Computed example of a mutant assay.
Amino acid sequence: MKMKILITGAGGSASIGLTRCLKNYFPKAKIIGVESDLFNSALSETNSTYLIPRASDKDYIKVLNHIILKEKIDFLYPQTDSEISAIAKNIRKIQCKTLIPSFKIISTCQNKYKLNKHLFAKGIPVPKTILIKTSSDLKNATKYKLFWLRNVTGAGAKGAFLAENFEQAIWWINFQNGWGHFTASEYMPEDNYGCDLLFAGGKLVFSQIKRRLEYVLSKANIVGITGTTGILETVSTKFDLNDISERAVTLLDNNISGAFSVDIKCDSLSKPYVTEINPGRFLSSSMHLFAETKFPAPALVILVANDQKLPSFPKRNPIKGGTILIRQLDRKPATVNLKNHNRLRKKFERKHYVKLET
């Protein structure tokens, strides 16, 4: 299929994996990237890359559409959470096809406390969780041994800490200035799973379970979780995990479409609980798993959006069980010339976007 695909966050780990996946399945496609970090842009593997404003910038959508029209883009594939949210919020303004959930669904999923309450009300097993607004809330949480503290927004285990008592918990909340936007939850000490899913009009296209075995630079994080999986194993027989993931997503909207990823942690009795749903994207490590195993998950997103015929594969756990993915960093380091770097930065400040040299 000859087409032009625009991906966001092009120099980030997930988008590097995404680029490799799309090149595997669409060798004739032109893949164009946008990146808001000038340093990260040097790592992009797209055919060409633009430096653009961050998703929070008032001109983000305007610049994105300028590039879409200039490059005659056929499909926009957003990757980072902030860009998925910004694009969903302005979906009627986007000048090409894309496939992401509604802004309402994204807002629910990207707030972990709001999602926890939503899933609990729908009967999905979730960890007991309290929003910490006051010291009384924290005392109540520690009374019930809810010692897992984390920010309600963000990725990469942002703000996560496993307290041992009330004194440690209140110190951490104070240190993080977390009153009102941190939660305390049951700690899930056993297996850690992720499930990537794709839906089309409420119907499952596929779901794939993986078990996280180790995180990259885990010893550099106070809780050993960095959000970047270093070693994972595909799982083909735990269909209860597929069940819980699929139900959790379809209970957001029974006509749901797009990519999702669900995080599942198990308690001391190995009972699974849903801890997160990432809307509009597959997990970062999964992009590299898909690229290495040649399973065309990101390409399927584009095929679904264009009502194209899909290749044949098992709907549940299409990648052979027991496949191990081992990661450290996802491409060779790049060097940049400081003088040229500063020149590009100044040009970006003048024009608000820059097409970078390859």
Rank of each mutant, 00 (worst) to 15 (best):
M3W: 02
G9S: 13
G9A: 12
A10P: 04
A10V: 05
R20F: 03
C21P: 00
I32C: 03
S44H: 06
I52H: 00
A55W: 01
K62I: 13
E71G: 04
K72I: 07
P78L: 07
T80I: 12
A86N: 06
A88Q: 01
S102M: 04
F103V: 12
K104T: 11
K104V: 07
I105W: 04
S107M: 09
Y113M: 10
L119M: 05
A121E: 09
P125Y: 05
V126P: 01
K128N: 14
K128R: 15
I130R: 14
L131P: 00
I132D: 00
K133S: 11
S135L: 15
K139M: 13
T142F: 11
Y144T: 10
W148F: 15
A157P: 05
A157L: 07
L162H: 07
L162W: 01
L162G: 06
A163E: 08
A163G: 11
E164H: 14
E164W: 05
N165Q: 11
E167T: 13
N174K: 15
N174G: 07
F175N: 05
Q176K: 14
G178L: 10
H181F: 13
T183I: 15
T183R: 00
M188L: 15
D191I: 09
Y193S: 08
D196I: 10
D196K: 06
G202E: 01
G202I: 02
K203A: 12
Q208K: 08
L213A: 04
E214D: 05
Y215H: 07
I222A: 02
I222T: 02
T226E: 06
I231T: 13
L232A: 03
D240V: 13
L241M: 09
D243E: 13
S245D: 10
S245Y: 10
R247G: 02
R247P: 04
N254W: 03
G258A: 10
A259I: 04
V262C: 04
D263N: 09
I264K: 11
K265N: 11
S270D: 07
V274T: 01
I277V: 08
R281I: 05
R281W: 00
F282M: 11
L283F: 07
S284A: 14
S285P: 03
F290G: 00
F295L: 02
A297T: 04
A299V: 00
L300S: 00
I302M: 00
N306E: 12
K309N: 05
K315H: 12
K315M: 13
K315V: 07
I324K: 02
D330R: 08
R331H: 03
R331F: 01
K332E: 12
V336I: 15
N342P: 02
N342V: 08
R345E: 14
K346E: 14
R350P: 06
Y353E: 09
K355T: 05
L356C: 04
T358M: 11
